[in-house]
Nucleic acid binder design. Structure first.
Lengths: 244, 244
DNA sequence: CGTAGACTTGAGAGTCATCAACGTAAGTGG
DNA sequence: CCACTTACGTTGATGACTCTCAAGTCTACG
């Protein structure tokens, strides 16, 4: 299917839902903004989608024009090195901003692809810089969000065992889901094992084996992609050295 | 020695060297600023130092108040996890901004320590946000520098062999030194093997062995901490998959 | 000159990757 | 409705890369 077959489309119904009414506002770009500033932000935000599993939002080398905030669904960012190996950089939940790494080189550094049915908000970078110039709270939030990305990208780099990595991964997901009002103990993984493995720099077989070990030890329940954190305390103990 | 014994001090002579006259301006915060904007930046920049090997600029948990630009010498940032393992996050050359990861949680997330005799420029975060509000070029540069940090932190995460990592490390250093007017082929490592190993998530012994292998293959010359890149092309070939 | 720390070198072990086969679920077309 | 396909996931056997442990060398410094 040609890329054009899945063009972004705007729907009048979704357009009505402004930042000021968005349940994600407190996690996203508008965090902390006054009502009238939020309306100014609304004016430069476009809602796109729905997209589907496998649809790309942008690809390596694309000209950088906009930032995207995930609105629903999940996205994966990844890059492909010269020998063709894929490298998953992150999984992005609603309220998270993606594309920030493209500002510096003015070109997208990675690919972003929907993991399931997803919608996003698009903000032109020019608009957001111009608006940040006038709205201190928005500039502040941009700095905060970028700073957070630096911190979490650093944390991922550490050398941890397969068990630590996987436990850290589950807890990180759990925390982020909780912040969005979902159950922190019972959730569905949007991504295949291969992507989890790649993200954690493990082989898919290792992920499978460690998951099985966690199940046997009663730490988690797992059925296909459905996860239950049965013993949060012990999972935290395993992941205690992994910052998240 | 108590921390107070090595307090930052300001010297009248260094104070005179403003951003507008700094040779690092094109790599650092003032990049792209007009003359009068640069003077406004000067007004909020303090020069500190010299510091010495082992002096800490800040530590995990310290309240976040300022960003620091390395002016001379080199800094290492690192963190210590709950089990006491050290984790090196990066080595910072003149013109590089450190402390950006502390904005989000408003507290320093890592320790920053001088690797040799070093000086820094300190900018209060409140000042820089206020100034960025009025100077579009400064805001733009802040976004760029933070974006770059996101990209490079992501790149470090990949799973590469010891040879790829070390080759990538040498080339990255080489590139950054070249950008600062130093020889890209002949330089001195400011950090001990232990730190290189830790940064690359390897054992010091592995670093030692791979260095030796590179020497036997004629890729590099190495005497203590003095490095010569003898066959840049083959080193690049080794590191071709490692983004830098 | 002696000690301490950094670095090197060697031997052995362990974690995890690789390779291969199999099982399972979902979708397709007959 | 069932064979077929395909992608995903699991399980087992084997091996490699790198870590750990240990000893030894070198350098700097007091």
């Amino acid at each position: 299917m040609p890329p054009s077959a899945r063009q972004p489309r705007l729907s009048p119904t979704t357009l009505r839902k402004a930042c000021s009414e968005c349940t994600l506002a407190e996690l996203c770009l508008p965090m902390g903004l006054e009502q009238d500033d939020m309306e100014r932000l609304d004016a430069v935000v476009e809602q796109l989608g729905p997209f589907h599993d496998g649809d790309h939002l942008y690809r390596v080398g694309d000209e950088f024009r906009s930032l995207y905030a995930v609105r629903s669904g999940q996205y994966k960012t990844y890059l492909v090195d010269e020998s063709g190996r894929e490298q998953v950089l992150g999984f992005h939940l609603p309220g998270e901003l993606i594309g920030l790494d493209a500002i510096y080189p003015d070109r997208h550094q990675c690919n972003a692809v929907a993991l399931d049915t997803a919608t996003v908000c698009r903000v032109s970078y020019d608009d957001i810089t111009a608006l940040s110039q006038r709205v201190p709270g928005l500039q502040r939030q941009m700095f905060r969000l970028m700073s957070r990305d630096i911190g979490s990208a650093q944390a991922l780099g550490g050398d941890y065992s397969a068990e630590e990595r996987l436990a850290g991964f589950l807890l990180n997901l759990s925390d982020r889901l909780r912040a969005r009002g979902y159950s922190p103990q019972h959730f569905v993984l949007a991504m295949p094992r291969r992507d989890i493995a790649n993200y954690l720099r493990l082989a898919p077989e290792t992920v499978s084996r460690v998951f099985k070990r966690f199940q046997r030890q009663g730490l988690i329940g797992l059925e296909r992609r459905e996860v239950r954190l049965l013993d949060m305390a012990r999972v935290q103990e395993l992941a205690r050295c992994v910052p998240h």
